[in-house]
Amino acid sequence: MRKLLPALVILVGVFFSTIYVVEEGTRGVVLRFNKIIDLSKPGLNFKIPGLDRVKIIDAKIRTTDSSNKQNSREQKFITREKKDLIVDYFVQWKIVDFNRYYEAIAGGYSVENLLLARLNGRLRAEIGKLDIKDIINDSNDETKSRNSLMLDVKDALNGTNRTDDLKQSDVDSSDHLNSFDESRTSMRAFGVEVIDVRIKQINFPPEVSESIYARMSAEREVVAREQRYQGIREAEETRAKANLHATQIISEAERQSRMIRGEGDANAAKLYADAFNKDKDFFSFIRSLKAYEQSFSGNDVMVISPDSEFFRYMKLSKEK
């Protein structure tokens, strides 16, 4: 039994050295004498001890952000109008050919840096074809928009072209140029497929931003001044209309009051005339009393003869 124990230990060691586990979301590249002989899927796998070794590679979708790279600087892009823009972007990609990918990294390439470099160059070329308004325009336009720009960049990195909707003459005239761009931009040779390219932020350089903000401020000040002047003009017009309307109302009220007053005076005169015709002595007496009331109410001095007709109703009757 003791003689079998070392052999058993060796067998167990050999068994455990022949198995390895590939976790979910990764792949195992099996190397024999530094040559790729197999690609291991997630799960329990076997290898030849001493001859084979396994390199685990992440197979999940990766996101590379232009602003998160070490020693990254602001990248200026020039539009068709010769305007400078600072563009912040990211790219999502995954490995579709692990053999090519491993050969690339084994050869000393940094696939992520290479992807960013080619993406930057292609993005610079596409931005140079558009105006600022086209880049800012986030629409589904197939020719001039930010969406179209990002799709063109993604297809160029994948080595494909969106030529289905183009005229055949345009395709034939640009076949040579497209193939040349593909060879310089495509990441297919490194086993990488680009899932998506997105522009996160577009800014102007500080010196350009200050001039733009100053111009926008001046334009807004002009608009604000025009709005204030328009408000003052409308207020004056409203005030003038209100004054005119008030004057018309007052004039109409004054006219109606005078008509009513005239009608009242006419009715009063008619009543007085009717009363005078019925009893002239009583009417004369009433008028004299009113004259007495108005004459003796103040401190005025009257010089008048006592025998005047004015004092007719103030004299005592001689009849008993």
Rank of each mutant, 00 (worst) to 15 (best):
Gly191Asp: 06
Asp181Val: 04
Leu123Arg: 02
Lys129Asn: 00
Asn113Glu: 13
Lys154His: 05
Asp138Cys: 03
Leu130Pro: 05
Pro205Ile: 00
Gly108Phe: 11
Leu151Val: 11
Val171Pro: 14
Asp131Ala: 13
Val208His: 01
Leu151Phe: 00
Glu193Trp: 10
Ile127Lys: 13
Asn158His: 00
Tyr213Trp: 06
His176Val: 11
Lys154Val: 00
Asn140His: 09
Leu130Asn: 05
Ala106Gln: 15
Arg228Pro: 01
Ala218Leu: 11
Tyr102Ser: 13
Asp138Met: 06
Arg118Trp: 02
Ser148Asp: 03
Phe180Val: 06
Ile136Arg: 09
Ala235Trp: 02
Ala156Gln: 08
Ala106Tyr: 10
Val194Trp: 12
Gly108Arg: 12
Gly107Tyr: 06
Gly121Ile: 01
Met150His: 01
Val197His: 02
Asp138Phe: 04
Ile232Ser: 01
Ser209Leu: 11
Leu177Glu: 08
Asn161Ile: 07
Arg184Leu: 09
Asp97Ser: 10
Ser211Pro: 02
Gly108Cys: 10
Met187Ser: 04
Leu149Glu: 06
Tyr101Trp: 06
Gly121Pro: 07
Ser173His: 08
Asp181Lys: 05
Ser179Glu: 11
Leu114Asp: 02
Tyr109Ile: 12
Lys94Glu: 12
Ala104Val: 05
Tyr109Gly: 07
Asn203Leu: 05
Gln201Trp: 02
Glu182Asp: 12
Lys144Glu: 14
Arg233Thr: 00
Ile127Ser: 10
Ile136Asp: 03
Tyr213Ile: 13
Tyr101Gly: 06
Ser209Gln: 14
Glu234Ala: 14
Glu221Trp: 01
Gly159Asp: 00
Tyr109Leu: 10
Ser148Met: 08
Asp196Ala: 01
Val96Tyr: 03
Ile105Leu: 03
Ile202Lys: 09
Ala156Val: 02
Asp175Tyr: 12
